[in-house]
Write a protein that binds this DNA or RNA. Structure first.
Lengths: 223, 223
DNA sequence: GTCTATAAAGGGATAGAC
DNA sequence: GTCTATCCCTTTATAGAC
């Protein structure tokens, strides 16, 4: 937004966004005060209201910074997969990959903020009562509808309801893992340290894709 | 704890616990004030400190009210399953059932608080930074270890790490679904309303058990 | 654009009457 | 065991100097 030299400490606005992202991911939106944020960002309390207008708008700004690019990339990858598999439906694992890979890529852009952003993403996906900013809602809903449609075509033998639930379960696995990636690293640290996000997400996709393979129990329309 | 007639409005202490459980589940621990709680419970602010000593201890009390019974029942059911399958390992779906069923039962005890407690449980399983009360920690760890052990025996072909991760994914599905059960009911309401918790959890177990069936990719010890 | 100072509201906790 | 009244702290937000 504003112009500045390359190797100078980030602008106040950016530092605030970074600090907010880290703290929100760690402790949630409500529990973090503006003082916590400006303290960590080495900025003044008043700077938040100067740059963003209010705490709520700061939350929106942090979300918007990533949500747009990620959802656009998801749509791109899904469309790309649909082209590659034009003869038949896209495999479930490819659909889940199109959903998750953009998150991994966004995290990888800056290794320093890797774990920070992991948790923040997980929190966005799971926080109760939190309302997505109006600016990203339409794209988000569009994206969710496209993925649901692709999954229905991938598993035409399943009822629509079952597909929706399993899509939801997959989101649950992803957000839960993002939020607790720290603890999990400790678990696996006994052997060879952090397995790396890429492998972790491959592992998640294997699990969820296998979950989609389960046959439907009972008659259709049981829901 | 205290004696009272059967058909009289619940004691203040109980009303506070009920209100706290509902509000904590809805909005998290930090975002809910004691005034929110006592307002909903039709009690006085000072009553919280009289009955519980502090807000933190109130949180502990809400957790303790359910955590003990649920974890004990989990252990009982796992032990029971191990007896039934004494010739061989307990199937994954039986293990997951032993883990999840006590939650369903606890929820079912009082249909009124069904959705309330769903979300509260989901929040306990997912809230970052929240520390389990010391009084329930040992039982919790013991329980987690027993289930991990059972799952390893159920899938001896998988590496220990893979089993741990997949157990974690299953927890993710469960907590995410508990916390968002409301939204999901809306989705399925088009056809026949609330599918009922029992069916929902059967569905979750199918999904997770199928996830455990996925073959392990790459060599062992890749983590 | 960044600071200090302060306003205005709400938080947890407690003393003391009943 | 329950209430009122109050203390003291932190919160968000803003006004105004620099």
């Amino acid at each position: 937004m504003t112009e500045r030299a390359a190797d100078v400490p980030a602008e106040t606005r950016e530092r605030i966004l970074d600090a907010a992202e880290a703290l929100f991911g760690e402790r949630g939106f409500d529990s973090v005060s503006l003082r916590d944020i400006t303290g960590q960002a080495e900025a003044n309390v008043a700077a938040v209201n100067y740059h963003f207008g209010s705490k709520e708008k700061l939350v929106d700004a942090v979300v918007e910074r990533h949500a747009g690019p990620i959802n656009e990339e998801r749509m791109r990858r899904l469309a790309d997969a649909e082209e590659r598999f034009e003869e038949g439906p896209v495999p479930v694992s490819e659909i889940l990959d199109a959903f998750l890979r953009p998150v991994v890529d966004e995290i990888m852009k800056d290794p320093v903020t890797e774990r920070v952003f992991c948790k923040f993403m997980g929190r966005i996906m799971s926080e109760q009562g939190y309302q997505l900013p109006e600016s990203v809602k339409p794209l988000f809903q569009q994206m969710a509808a496209a993925f649901a449609q692709a999954l229905r075509m991938a598993r035409p033998d399943l009822s629509d309801q079952t597909v929706m639930w399993r899509m939801h379960y997959s989101f649950g696995v992803m957000s839960h893992t993002l939020m607790h990636s720290e603890k999990l690293e400790q678990i696996s640290a006994g052997r060879s340290g952090n397995p790396g996000l890429e492998k972790l997400f491959d592992h998640i996709i294997e699990f969820c894709a296998a979950g989609f393979l389960a046959p439907e129990q009972g008659e259709e329309g049981q829901w």
